[in-house]
Write a protein that binds this DNA or RNA. Structure first.
Lengths: 187, 187
DNA sequence: CGGGCCATTGACTTAGGTCAATCTGCGTGG
DNA sequence: CCACGCAGATTGACCTAAGTCAATGGCCCG
């Protein structure tokens, strides 16, 4: 309902990869499963809303159209995960950062992926530390910091404090993200 | 039904990332969606079995337990995609190759992820070119080749032709894959 | 027997990681 | 109200895993 949380996978030697962010309105866990096989961390203070398994199952039995809604949700997550695989596997550090900013801009403006422009106020709140961003993008915190500085130097972003960025031209940002103009953004 | 196909995401500049492999028994496309937003390529000759949308929907209406079966399938794909994100983001080239071999071993032995050992005959058929493997693991074909040579040199694998590997010790392979012994393998 | 197509191997380059030294707010207690 | 301390951020110097470019090898098919 409020706040931001992260989902991650951790290796026994300590390496970890953030697998997704949970924004207000997102689901944690999946219908019919007792556990999520991933680590969940609160990034900010979080308020969430729980469902009881049995009650939820009863609801599901009564409202069959809910099934397809849930299927939608899971499929969107799947597409987002696959999109992120492209980012992790093939994008440069700078493209990763820009894609991340684009992703945040969309999530914060509550638009769906398909409606592209415009993001009017074009203010992005990072909410996370450099280390958490690094963990999401498979970089190091130093690289994140360097790229953010470099983006500011190039005028792609205008920092307003450590956690807030102003975006002069969203078009420039998209380009620097290596987005191909049609459907490249994470839902 | 037969053969192997790949799902990938391609950037406009030509970079591409394989997002998953389709083995016999897997689904292509998702119920209720007309298209998959990814590229599908046949790796070997493929024989597949199609469903008509309307007929499938009617079937779904009649057999509600099919809903939860489909949900299972999509959720397994989601977990696999997220697991692969860890591989893409945080594993070394050698670990990637080994994880890939483990993945293939499981897929080819038709076991579920959760049953770990043993893979009795421990023969792995690659079926793909080095370039396709590179595309799956976010490496270059040269790096794939070098790592396969190095694994053979170290006795982790015993090559039998270009497309076939014998695995003397599956335990060693798992270790070289950086798998943590509980649930690290891709479904 | 010849000609592609993969694959292998080598030499060199580079993006990003690592290690280490400041810097910058900002919340806290005196 | 202010100075102190500390967690997070920045920046620099150096290192390395993997990418790039290029030459060679070997296998399978006509």
């Amino acid at each position: 309902m409020h706040g931001l949380a992260s989902l991650s996978r951790v290796m026994e030697d300590g390496r970890s990869q953030m697998i997704g962010l949970l924004h207000p309105g997102d689901f944690l866990g999946h219908p019919g499963r007792q556990t999520t096989p991933f680590m969940v961390d609160a990034i900010t203070d979080v308020e969430l809303c729980g469902f009881q398994f049995k009650a939820f199952d009863r609801l599901l039995a009564k409202a069959p159209q809910l099934h397809s809604r849930l299927m939608e949700v899971v499929q969107d997550e799947l597409d987002a995960a696959r999109e992120w695989m492209l980012l992790l596997g093939r994008k440069s550090a700078r493209e990763k950062i820009c894609s991340f900013l684009v992703y945040l801009a969309y999530r914060q403006s509550k638009l769906r992926t398909t409606d592209r422009f415009p993001l009017s106020p074009s203010i992005i709140y990072l909410q996370m530390t450099r280390e958490q961003i690094a963990d999401f993008l498979a970089l190091t915190l130093e690289t994140v910091s360097r790229q953010l500085s470099s983006l500011a130097r190039d005028g792609v972003t205008a920092p307003a404090g450590r956690q807030t960025l102003h975006i002069p031209s969203f078009r420039n940002l998209l380009e620097a993200a290596g987005e191909d103009g049609d459907g490249g953004v994470i839902a």
